[in-house]
Computed example of a mutant assay.
Amino acid sequence: MRSIILGEVEIIRVVEWEGSFGSARRIVPGAGIETWEANEELLAPHFWDRGSDEWIGALQTWVLRSAGRTVLVDTNVGNGRERPSMPAFHHRNTDFLGQLAAAGVRPEDVDVVVNTHLHADHVGWNTVAEGPGAWRPAFPNATYLMPAADHAHFDPGNGRALRPDDVALFEDSVAPVVRAGQAVLWEGEYRIDEHLVLEAAPGHTPGSSVLRLDSGGERAVFVGDLLHSPVQIAEPAHNSCFCEDAAGAAATRRRVLGRAADERELVVPAHFGGPGAFEVRREAGRFAVRNWAPYTA
């Protein structure tokens, strides 16, 4: 457990797993080796293994203690999922709920679950198995906030051709929460409390969102998969291989980074390893890291 406090909100970082996810060139395909080498000081060793040319990332959840409630931001992959086209996510078995317990969070303590978008590594621990092929919400007292646009996009009943893994994630990690009456499908903007508000940030997926924190004059923005690597801070035009709308994702990335620089927001991506979060500044028409969060201190 590693935590910081901004205003009246405590932010606890729970890292389920951290390591190499594969080729840096595959994860951010638009950035050639020359781009990574030019930004080596920014990237190595926490985010890029120069020797193997692999991207280093994390599966993690951010726990917010805000206005007397416990909020989880994204829920990783989950155990026992059928994800054959994603080997790193297929039939995982980790002690994530034990890690949450070590951070002082029992499933029944969670009041709000935020899914910044509905990709497999952001919804998995929404549910737990209760029998063969049967799933129930992992957090029985929580309201799950899901972007309505993503729910429509990934719903197998929408008539759109979907990958088998996307059908599976909807059926095991999204639909059970909706059937249980615990989901709120929001659009545009959704205020959680006086410190936290969700805002639409489409591009990575149609419903991708960011969660903004503003408390006591201190600010943060949880950006989900808007950034997979710091190489996208230096070169925000480069999308990850998972972005579904390339132009939209790049435009949203520039907009969110620009506001973070202007308002001194701590930027908290879903998959950054190492320090995990950073402040950004404008520098000669580009963006640069002002400083890293103190999680690794």
Rank of each mutant, 00 (worst) to 15 (best):
A161C: 05
E82P: 00
V280T: 10
V289H: 12
A38F: 05
G7Q: 11
D74P: 00
P202R: 01
F170R: 06
H122F: 06
P156D: 09
L198E: 09
S209Q: 05
Q60K: 15
R253S: 13
V268K: 08
D121C: 09
E279F: 15
R264P: 02
L185I: 05
F170A: 03
A134Q: 15
E244R: 14
D172N: 09
D172S: 12
L211K: 05
F278T: 08
R212E: 08
E199M: 03
P206C: 10
G224V: 05
L59N: 04
S23H: 05
I5R: 14
G159E: 05
A270V: 03
P202A: 04
G68T: 02
H151P: 00
R191V: 09
S52Y: 09
E187T: 07
R179W: 11
E34L: 08
G276H: 07
F47P: 01
M1A: 12
W292D: 02
V231H: 07
W55E: 03
A120L: 15
E8A: 14
E187D: 14
L162V: 03
A237L: 13
A270S: 14
H91M: 15
G181V: 13
F21N: 01
P164G: 09
E8M: 00
D262Q: 13
S20Y: 06
R253E: 12
G57T: 07
E18W: 03
N93G: 08
A249T: 07
L64H: 06
F96M: 15
F242H: 14
V167E: 07
S3G: 02
G22P: 02
P45L: 14
A129V: 06
R286K: 09
G157S: 01
P29N: 13
V9T: 09
E283Y: 10
D109A: 09
F21E: 05
N115I: 03
V167A: 04
R92W: 06
G274F: 15
D95H: 03
F139N: 10
V9F: 05
G80A: 04
R281T: 12
F47V: 01
R264F: 03
D121E: 04
D225N: 07
W186Y: 10
L6C: 02
A288S: 15
F47R: 07
H122Y: 02
T296C: 12
P230K: 06
R286P: 00
R26P: 00
T70E: 04
A38Y: 11
D166T: 05
C243M: 04
R92E: 15
G159Q: 05
H90F: 05
G57W: 00
L196P: 01
A270N: 13
A237R: 12
T75C: 11
W125G: 07
R253K: 13
I33H: 07
E54L: 07
F222M: 13
V174C: 08
H46M: 11
E108R: 09
R160N: 11
A249S: 15
V112P: 03
P206E: 11
G248R: 09
Q182S: 11
E235S: 11
H271F: 10
E199V: 00
D214L: 14
L162P: 06
P132W: 02
V112K: 00
D225V: 03
S209N: 06
F278L: 15
P140L: 06
H151N: 13
